[in-house]
Design a binder for these strands. Structure first.
Lengths: 136, 136
DNA sequence: TATGTATTTAGACTAATTCTAATCCGAGAA
DNA sequence: TTCTCGGATTAGAATTAGTCTAAATACATA
């Protein structure tokens, strides 16, 4: 397991194991916002032992809880995962389902939204903008 | 079936049936963004015949396709439905899971976001902001 | 009344995810 | 070194959300 991945997991309080390492490594390597099943298929042959789907789900949940990755929900029915934890938003191509990162720069001088929500009785911790559209 | 619901369905090209009417009526009556199962439970006894879950799913999909209601996805694993089709966004209470409407007024003078996305090779049709937080 | 099309139904099926119980592994303790 | 204990992993069962199928039903119109 690469030193960088080991460091990354340790830094977030996640004990590095071979399974967690290949999953995290795969997520770092792709911009495709894979589903749990796509992660499973991408890494199942990268280990000397068989990999259980339960481990993939456990690991993804752990990595999200510990802040190593983000869960992205753009469509009903399944979750996607994103190793880019910098502040950004998402674009969904309605024709292909492809999910792409939208860096803050891309959306111009959008002010930080601080909604005074419900007469101030709720506190907004963060927000997520999802753009929907298609290739021109 | 109420005249207003019948009108609403007709206006959107949906043939009014008793099943569709009670489902649409329930959605108009609540701000709770129910899931398909919550809709089923809320209306199953409001008809003289038994109601099939398939009918609830069929109806919700039809109503979304015809623009009578909106599908709202805020968490992985299930869809929610919203009869408020005016332009607005959503707030999710992370402690209760409750989903609330955020009218445009609530978020101040947010400019219409027209991201120049990926060097203009994608066309944004619409976007959805989801706020996450909790009660103060 | 006959017919055709859309709608509804129950239940089978599928997909995504979680749960369970057994096994495995590795870091200290003896 | 061997023991032990807790966390991690495994295969497969179970659960949940949603779709599909085939048969029955309900209408609208000829």
């Amino acid at each position: 397991m690469s030193y960088e991945i080991e460091q990354l997991l340790n830094k977030h309080g996640v004990k590095p194991t071979p399974q967690r390492a290949v999953i995290a490594e795969y997520l770092m390597s792709t911009m495709s916002h894979p589903t749990a099943d796509e992660v499973f298929q991408a890494v199942e042959n990268k280990l000397p032992v068989s990999l259980s789907r339960a481990t993939v789900y456990n690991t993804l949940n752990t990595l999200v809880e510990k802040g190593v990755i983000r869960e992205v929900v753009t469509e009903a029915g399944k979750a996607r995962y994103d190793a880019n934890i910098s502040d950004h938003h998402h674009f969904v191509d309605l024709e292909t389902g492809q999910v792409m990162d939208v860096p803050l720069e891309e959306i111009g001088n959008l002010p930080i939204i601080q909604p005074k929500f419900m007469d101030g009785s709720f506190e907004v911790q963060n927000f997520q903008i999802t753009f929907f559209g298609k290739r021109k």
